[in-house]
Design a protein around this nucleic acid. Structure first.
Length: 493
RNA sequence: GGUCCCAUCGUCUAGGGGUUAGGACACCGCCCUUUCACGGCGGCGGCAGGGGUUCAAAUCCCCUUGGGACUACCA
């Protein structure tokens, strides 16, 4: 790999579906890579076999692709720095861990989970800072040899200097100083032979030539450990950028499943567009030099810069996402909108799967009527249901009663409408509007007094697209039969 | 408890010594209008507190307060 090339990695752990916070990290990773003509690498950090979720990797890949964040190296596409699954790189971590032991920079620890737990309990009871008490740090080589030979379980711990300080650097926050005394001898290789995050990420970031590590703020407390590892291994330290954490909408604590949707997949299922989610995420922790709010992925690439990422925690509130979604829905062509709505309509049983071409063409025709009225794709069924269903719910005709006039008066108005519509040569907007406005005039009523009953009779709803376009799209047969059903329902009481 | 990070409208944020503290979402009002939306116009609303430094502090420094992260053989 080219030494000057910017190489950025997104390294999720497959312990669940791609989290919205992870999606933002991936976005910024991707943006930096594209911006600098570098490479975007996807690496799967599957070193915790207890929390491993089988279909998580598929979900992560699907979600990333759905968002438009294609990776240049990683699962499915390969690359020179592979393999890209940490579980396939175990020998590497074990080698470096052994090297560190040999160099006297790490040591075998035979402490049992029970002893560790007991130690922690005592520390807490005594209100002491927690951390490993270095029980095995002073073991003689002979004893270590003997216990290893006896097959005792062990982990490898990093030997943190007892005194002194270490200076680390975050690109956004600058230099930070940590006292060694506040760090304990952390585990780098677990007893099952798998590495911990600390070792694995440092080894891989180095071996994969990563130049910029962008990750969540929760890692900044681990920075001194990582610097220590780089130093012990004699490697150059990459640039670190820690992203502000996502707080729950109420501002209390980290964002979690408790606070509603947190998985990219859930947003997708709710009917959010990837364009909207990307735009929303882009602005959660980053701001352009001007006040531009709307960004395509391409525009974001040219505007993006790491220096403009903010450092204060972000409260994850969805209001603006809904606004973005409405904007992007309105920007879609009718054809494209219909295509994106189709799965939701099929899910709700309003259209068959596969959808016959004529039905789809009709759907496309309905799009202009609802495009500026939906904020989520999932709202399409409600918005367009009465067009696709043969029958609507007759009891809805009851809505006509009460507001204005008696049921009988309303029924009479609807009868007039049926009559007025009869002679129409073309059931189109122009003729419909002409006929109905003339009727309103003749009856000496206000437009709404006629239009609203018709609207409800024909759709079962009070909120709909414009009446004339709606009637035209519905077609003569449905309009007349629904009007007659409403009249009958009104008369029945 | 310890270590570390953070602090401008309700939310996302611009502004980094001299600004009527700017924008967006949300909310409210008006206009458009056959309903609902869309759109247009307008409004409400903020520098956590206290000390410094300075002619001048939202901006620099310190303290307090508040919020958050981490404190695993999880990442």
């Amino acid at each position: 790999m080219n030494k000057d090339e910017v190489r950025v990695r997104f390294a999720p752990s497959p312990t669940g579906y791609l989290h919205i916070g992870g999606a933002r990290t991936a976005l910024y990773d991707w943006l930096l890579a594209r911006k600098s003509g570098g490479r975007f690498i996807l690496r799967i950090e599957d070193t915790d076999r207890n929390r491993y979720v089988p279909d998580a990797v598929e979900d992560i890949k699907d979600s990333l692709r759905w968002l438009g964040l294609e990776w240049d190296e990683g699962p499915d596409v390969g690359g020179a720095a592979g393999p890209y699954f940490q579980s396939e790189r175990l020998a590497l971590y074990q080698k470096y861990a052994a090297d560190l032991v040999r160099a006297g920079k790490a040591y075998y620890c035979f402490c049992t989970p029970e002893r560790l737990e007991e130690m922690r309990r005592k520390q807490e009871a005594a209100n002491q800072p927690s951390g490993y008490d270095r029980h095995c740090r002073g073991l003689s080589p002979e004893e270590v040899e003997q216990r290893l030979a006896a097959g005792e379980k062990y982990v490898i711990r990093f030997k943190v200097p007892l005194t002194g300080k270490i200076q680390v650097r975050d690109e956004l926050r600058g230099e930070m100083v940590f006292d060694y005394a506040t760090l304990d001898d952390f585990v780098i290789l677990k007893s099952d032979g798998f590495p911990t995050y600390h070792l694995a990420s440092v080894v891989d970031d180095h071996l994969m030539g990563i130049t910029h590590v962008i990750r969540g703020e929760e890692w900044i407390i681990s920075l001194p450990r990582h610097f220590l590892l780089y130093e012990a291994l004699g490697w150059e330290v990459p640039a670190f950028v820690h992203l502000p954490i996502f707080l729950s909408p109420d501002g209390k604590g980290k964002l979690s499943k408790r606070h509603g949707a947190t998985g990219v997949r859930e947003f997708r299922e709710k009917g959010y567009l990837p364009e909207a989610l990307v735009n929303f995420l882009l602005l959660l922790g980053w701001h352009p030099a001007d006040d531009q709010e709307l960004f395509t992925l391409e525009e974001a690439v040219s505007a993006f810069s790491v220096e403009r990422i903010s450092t204060s925690p972000v409260s994850f509130s969805l209001d603006k996402l809904d606004w973005f979604n409405g904007i992007y829905i309105r920007r879609l062509s009718h054809e494209e909108l219909a295509k994106r709505c189709l799965p939701f309509l099929q899910r709700d049983g309003l259209l068959p799967d596969p959808c016959p071409p004529e039905r789809f063409a009709y759907l496309v025709r309905l799009m202009p009527l609802v495009q500026e009225r939906i904020k989520l794709l999932s709202e399409i069924s409600q918005a367009v249901g009465y067009f696709l269903r043969e029958e609507i719910d007759p009891p809805e005709a009851a809505l006509l009663v009460g507001k204005k006039g008696t049921p009988e008066e309303t029924a009479r108005i609807l009868e007039e409408v049926v009559e007025a519509l009869g002679p129409l040569t073309e059931f189109n907007e122009e003729q419909l509007e002409q006929a109905l406005r003339a009727l309103v005039e003749r009856l000496g009523l206000k437009a709404g007094q006629v239009f609203m009953p018709v609207r409800v009779a024909v759709t079962g709803q009070t909120a709909t697209p414009g009446l004339f376009e709606l009637l035209a799209a519905l077609g003569r047969n449905k309009v007349i039969s629904r009007l007659q059903q409403a009249i009958a329902a009104l008369r029945k009481g």
